[in-house]
């Protein structure tokens, strides 16, 4: 298992050397080709910027006002009944909204309760097993001018909810006494 982390540290350096080298052997003019692709990336970043700005400001207001914390307090007694520890609830609420926010909460939980506690394990699994649904939705659809999302949001949130509930169940199985 420790090898897995070693692999993940080697992954990006390997990609950085293998792809250009492979292209070189295939007679691609590597630098020109790279720059051509990079130009597209910069344009894309500018096109998605307004969507990121809009999302971050709304989430910033919701979080900064204390309303997010109040919402968390409101729903935690209900969720406590299904074996969902109240400490981890802010993470479940913030995970679909803000990637950096969720990472901050996960780091806090791991440091406060210890990485090998039940809460530390659960926070780690939750953080790793879902992604920032609202952000991805806004950015991916914003980039190509989709106005009618149809069922996208509901499907994304279904995946998040099932992922969270599964994370709790699996953590009870894998880390019962921690």
């Amino acid at each position: 298992m420790a090898a897995l982390y070693g692999i993940s540290q080697w992954m990006i350096p390997l990609i950085l050397v293998v792809i250009p080298l492979w292209a070189w052997f295939k007679q691609v003019s590597v630098y020109d080709c790279f720059v051509e692709g990079a130009a597209e990336g910069v344009k894309t970043a500018i096109r998605i910027f307004p969507y990121i700005l809009g999302m971050l400001v709304a989430i910033g207001i919701f979080r900064g006002s204390g309303a997010l914390a109040a919402l968390t307090d409101l729903v935690s007694p209900v969720l406590g009944k299904i074996g969902f520890p109240a400490e981890v609830l802010p993470l479940a609420v913030i995970r679909p909204l803000s990637g950096s926010g969720a990472l901050g909460v996960t780091a806090e939980l791991i440091n406060a309760y210890g990485p090998d506690s039940f809460i530390g394990h659960l926070a780690s699994v939750m953080q790793g097993s879902t992604d920032t649904t609202f952000y991805i939705l806004a950015v991916y659809f914003g980039a190509v001018g989709i106005k009618k999302y149809r069922h996208a949001l509901w499907v994304g949130l279904t995946a998040d909810c099932v992922g969270f509930l599964t994370a709790i169940f699996i953590c009870h199985l894998f880390f019962p006494l921690s």
Binding site: M1, A2, L4, Y5, I7, S8, M11, L103, T106, A107, I110, N111, G114, P115, D116, G120, H121, S124, V125, M126, Q127, G128, S129, T130, G163, T166, A167, I170, C171, F174, F175
Partner: peptide, 28 residues
């Protein structure tokens, strides 16, 4: 490989930073 989380756990001094890999994979 949930690399970011493994990194966080390593920094926090976990006994086994990668013990969450299989549970994470199943949940996802």
């Amino acid at each position: 490989i949930p690399a970011t989380v493994i990194g966080l756990r390593t920094k926090a001094g976990a006994l086994n930073a990668v013990d969450i890999v299989l549970p994470t994979f199943l949940a996802t």
